[in-house]
């Protein structure tokens, strides 16, 4: 599948934004984050900024962005519509949670309920995003049980790295944040490794034999002549192909940037000899590297995905 920049940015940025939002809500509720103005302002600005920029970016790849409100109507059947509705609805409790935190320095009472609601809705929104992909039967690299947990864990994981950095910046760091980050990094690493093993080994359900029904004649089916000489929409959209050797290099980069390096940097700060400034720099480094890593991971998520319509064009799945 064609790795469109708009969609890669949308899923990674909004994933991190919702992840951070959910963690901000949880840790203000548990009292580990104080209800102070500047912390609240910066944290909410980063979280809502990532979510907003992601959602705007997702509209960039539309043929008719001005009609986007229509995309909220079919929530009964469409995961994309559900995601859109929930993304917009989440702004209501999140807005109130943010107002309480930043302007009233209060995260209790009604604002606590809004924080809890924000956390739940953020998680469900990321789940709905993942289901847009996981529900597509023609793409076996997406239509599997690894995709929704991977989206949720990677979103929360990148959000947790942002949280650690913010907490360092404002001097409100708690080891709980670091431990959570490490736990999420390890879970994400295991999930993504299992995902790659799955897509590398699971047999493709469809072949050119089933796609044409000519498998019934016995033997394999081969493409003899293309229906057209130039690339059409299908080939440009679904026919993106990445060489296996490039894919394995990029996977290595993901292992390194998204998991190994942030894990090392986050673990390092538990060593008591590390001065606060160095710990802050390490948490910033973890954010930057994981940002590059998650963009590569999402690029691969698209580039490695194969679509059954390409069977007709002589591709294997």
């Amino acid at each position: 599948m064609h790795p469109a920049f708009s969609v890669i940015f949308f899923t990674t940025a909004s994933g991190a934004g919702y992840g951070l939002l959910a963690l901000l809500a949880i840790f203000t509720l548990s009292g580990l984050l104080p209800a102070t103005t500047w912390l609240g302002f910066v944290a909410m600005a980063i979280s809502l900024g990532l979510i907003g920029a992601g959602l705007l970016s997702s509209m960039l790849h539309l043929g008719h962005p001005e009609r986007f409100l229509r995309a909220l109507t079919q929530w009964r059947s469409s995961w994309l519509a559900r995601e859109g509705v929930l993304a917009i609805a989440t702004f209501v409790p999140t807005g109130l949670f943010g107002i309480g935190w930043v302007f009233l320095n209060s995260t209790s009472g009604m604002f606590a309920w809004m924080a809890a609601l924000s956390a739940v809705m953020a998680a469900v929104t990321v789940f709905f995003t993942s289901m847009i992909y996981a529900s597509l039967k023609p793409i076996r690299q997406w239509h599997n049980g690894f995709v929704p947990p991977a989206y949720i864990v990677l979103g929360t994981m990148t959000g947790a790295l942002l949280l650690v950095f913010l907490a360092r910046l404002f001097g409100v760091y708690s080891p709980v944040f670091g431990i959570l980050g490490i736990a999420l990094l390890m879970t994400g690493w295991v999930l993504k490794t299992a995902y790659w093993r799955h897509i590398d080994t699971a047999p493709a359900r469809s072949t050119l034999g089933t796609a044409t029904g000519l498998g019934r004649l016995g033997g394999d089916v081969r493409l003899l002549e293309m229906p057209h000489t130039e690339e059409n929409f299908l080939m440009r959209e679904m026919g993106y192909q990445i060489a296996r050797k490039h894919a394995s290099k990029l996977r290595f980069l993901v292992h390194l940037l998204l998991f190994a390096a942030p894990l090392a940097l986050t673990t390092l700060t538990f060593w008591s000899a590390v001065p606060p400034l160095a710990a802050g720099a390490a948490s910033f480094g973890a954010v930057v590297l994981a940002g590059l890593g998650v963009a590569t991971e999402r690029w691969l998520f698209f580039a490695e995905a194969t679509h059954t319509s390409m069977l007709y064009y002589g591709r294997t799945m």
Binding site: G209, T212, L217, L223, L224
Partner: peptide, 8 residues
């Protein structure tokens, strides 16, 4: 679109 395949 009209494809041509070899089979059998």
């Amino acid at each position: 679109r009209v494809f041509t395949f070899e089979a059998g």
